[in-house]
Computed example of a mutant assay.
Amino acid sequence: MKQKDRAADSALAYVRLLCSTGVKSTLVVPDLLRTLHDVVPATGYVFTWMDMAGGLAAMYCEPPLDTPVPEFLKDPAYLLAQAGYRNDHLQGQSRNGQVAEISASPEFKSSEFFEVMCRPAGVEHGWDGFVRMDGRVCAVLALWRDAHMARVDAEEEYQLRCVFPHLAHLLAVEKDASDEGAGDRFLPSGEHGLAVVDGTGRIIHASPEAQRMLWYLAHPAFRGHGSPVGDGVPANEAIEEVCRRLCALLRNQPTPAPGLHLRNQWGAFSIRGFILSGHPQAWGDSGATLFGLQVSRCVPPEVAAVRRMMGLPLSHKQRELCLQLVRGLKPAQIEAVLGIKPTTQKDYLLRIYNKLQIASREELFDRLLQTEPAHRVEV
Rank of each mutant, 00 (worst) to 15 (best):
K2V: 04
D9S: 14
L17C: 13
L18Y: 08
L33G: 09
L33P: 04
R34K: 11
P41H: 04
T43I: 01
C61D: 12
P64A: 06
P64F: 01
V69F: 10
E71R: 09
P76Q: 00
A77W: 01
Y78D: 05
L79K: 00
L80H: 13
Q91H: 13
V99C: 09
E101Y: 12
F108W: 15
S111C: 07
G135L: 04
V137I: 11
M149K: 02
E157T: 01
C162Y: 02
C162S: 10
C162D: 07
G183R: 11
G183M: 12
P188L: 03
S189I: 01
G193P: 10
G193N: 02
L194Y: 06
D198L: 06
R202P: 04
M213T: 02
A218M: 04
P220W: 01
E237I: 11
E237P: 06
E237S: 14
A238N: 08
I239E: 07
V242H: 05
G259N: 11
W266V: 05
S270Q: 02
F274H: 14
W283Y: 12
Q294S: 13
R297K: 12
P300M: 03
S315Q: 11
Q318P: 06
R319I: 03
R327Y: 07
L338N: 07
L349D: 07
L356N: 12
L356W: 14
L364A: 09
L364G: 11
D366S: 05
R367D: 13
R367S: 14
P373F: 00
H375R: 10
